[in-house]
Write a protein that binds this DNA or RNA. Sequence first.
DNA 1: CATTGGCTTACATCTGCCTTACATTCTTTC
DNA 2: GAAAGAATGTAAGGCAGATGTAAGCCAATG
Lengths: 230, 230
Amino acid sequence: MPSQPRILIIEDDRKMSEALVSGLEDAGYHIETASSGEEGFYLVHKLRPDLLLLDLTLPHRNGLEILRQLRQDGIDLRVLILTSHNTVEDRVEGLNTGADDYLGKPFSFPELLARIDALLRRMLPASEPGPLRIGDLTLDLRAQTALRNGQPLELTQREFDLLLYLAQNRGRIVSREMLAHDVWRETSRFTPINNVIDVQIARLRRKIDDPFPIKLLQTVRGLGFCLREP
Amino acid sequence: MPSQPRILIIEDDRKMSEALVSGLEDAGYHIETASSGEEGFYLVHKLRPDLLLLDLTLPHRNGLEILRQLRQDGIDLRVLILTSHNTVEDRVEGLNTGADDYLGKPFSFPELLARIDALLRRMLPASEPGPLRIGDLTLDLRAQTALRNGQPLELTQREFDLLLYLAQNRGRIVSREMLAHDVWRETSRFTPINNVIDVQIARLRRKIDDPFPIKLLQTVRGLGFCLREP
DNA sequence: CATTGGCTTACATCTGCCTTACATTCTTTC
DNA sequence: GAAAGAATGTAAGGCAGATGTAAGCCAATG
């Protein structure tokens, strides 16, 4: 759901890890890495990535055990196993443990990219190539610009991200939790991030709603916010 | 989502098709088959299967064209390509066209099963309870919204909780004790919070019944309240 | 007609949201 | 690389709507 998907790589081979990072960052993903099972397990909980690239031969703990534990905890993320254990039995075991896809080393990078895209495709909001429109508000995703009533709005990065997320969920109520997770990429639920959201919503409102008679961004008390044409 | 997932196989090789059907039926799936692209395309629209097993070498029309057309139509189903075209380029093209997975022939049946399970795994927990309906009153649990006669009702959090509880017990008499316990989470039974309930019931009535001729929320003197269509 | 339970109104409190001002971090520019 | 400026985050206070409380009134039941 977030505009830039986050991928965590758990891989102990430094060379391989670096190659993956550079290739995937070029492809537009936000990458984090871990070099051991423990670190990876911790980072999954801390960062809540959208996709996990998992090597199976890890120091200390087996990759499959990590995966099993994550699934037991009910963590909802895509997992692509990327390993040199590549017999049919390995693949079946990996998939049955809870992986969403399995690719053996050596692999072709284009295929890896295509499989990653296939896994993330369903999480991303229907990526319409054209600009998003809500009432007289127009969002151009490519140019990172917003127009209201044909008139350009000067939005900062956060403001644009926030507005984009609301626009992609137009008509639906967006909770603070969703915003914290998908826009701020905040995971620790006990840090009171609530106020930041309030402030940014206010700043966004000042730009997109205050100068205009019709208000698009509504507050739903106790639940969150909603962007809709009235 | 359905208890027994439905799989459609588009495959022109009769032998292969029959082998797949018998193996997958043994695994507990409901199988339909098509032997040409046109038939398959038609059956996808008619049967709305959960998963499509797609061969690429089909008479008359190319399997990828079928897939492209389905994706253009916005059809949401999982697609696993199963074909003898098995170069890296083929796989990348298939995945980028919109397939969720790609398996080359010859393949191992256990691996096919594991990949099918992995694809269907994510659909199962999507058991959304669907909106509750009592007469012309509709409760959407997900969006926390209520409609009466198609017209949205502006309910507060408590009002919604209360209405939801009554709706879940529609037709049954709900006592004050039940409400105190289940809606207000009140434990000490001696604190007389009866009045709170009365007041909130009155407020709820004002919104869901007062503007309409047919009254859904009735008082049963000495026992409690009851939500039912008259 | 008295009693009981339920309804209504008015008011008190409490929570959640908004605002403002200020601090910190990140960028830009010379 | 230091200073200036913009962007973002933090903290505190105020306001309004939501919820709870109390008291009086009304309607049903015997």
